[in-house]
Amino acid sequence: MNNFTYIAADTPKQAANIISQNPDAAFIAGGTNLIDLMKENIAKPNQLIDLNKIPGLDEITELPDAGLRLGALARNADTAYHPLVQERYPLLADAILAGASAQLRNMATNGGNLLQRTRCYYFYDIATPCNKREPGSGCAAYDGYNRMNAILGSSEHCVAVFPSDMCVALAALNATVNVSGATGERQIPFNEFHRLPGDTPQLDNNLQHGEIITSIDLPPGGLNKNYSYLKLRDRTSYAFALVSIATAFELKDGLIVDARIALGGVAHKPWRVTEAEEFLKNKQPAKESFTQAATLILKGAVGLKHNAFKIELAKRAIVRNCLTALNPDK
């Protein structure tokens, strides 16, 4: 861990001002990922700006349109167990509780969850090349041990996956990220928040240096009747996903009127394919349609040496999870 100074900010504006003057500073909230990265000498900020003392950012409040605003500093656990989240957005609650451990969820914040970095083995080992960690050094995972790596949307420069569970549900629920910076505030639709690696894999998302996530908005209609979150991994709990899936339907008169299917553990961002969701609309929910949707979602998937199985695994998981979403209580 490198040498750094510490300051606690009182307001988002103050935090933004401090960081705007120092390109090597970093915000810290829950710390569960950043401190880990600092111990690995991957993140080396020379100054930490503690956001935890900023009042008001840890609240979960109803929006006038019956949506819900999740404060960026609200802890993952407090979000998952919040009565309004449980009632209106149970898919989000399930996704959060499928991630990490109870201890980590008690510390980790909602804003931080969006900003967590990949668990690619090579990103984490500074003795190996990694374009995300050190642009231009190469991607050791591409021909290396890549069981946990991407099958969709990757590039020759980076095959890392984004490890969050929570964000898979947020993607499916069409959330919006509220951001505050030195130049003001803006809103980023969730599906535009994270990036694909392309030739700039060092950029995980479209947040600018100095911008702070203040909250995440969930639109009304949490799809709380027909939903399911499925996570497949190498142990029963406390492991990152090989494939995870957030599925939600709105059904009317025996037909699917709205379908959301987002995948985690397969790409550099939560993966949604509009074509597949449109395909399911106005159809009766049936295994055959789900199988076709799965094929559409995995279109263009490329398996690497150690993770090709994830393509078929993802297809099967999509079908199963669609069926489960029809009867979420079972």
């Binding site: 668990r119 083995y121 142990r235 029963t236 406390y238 492991a239 990152f240």
Partner: peptide
Amino acid sequence: GEYHTPVNA
């Protein structure tokens, strides 16, 4: 985290 030994579950 990645050398998997069993967890309670």
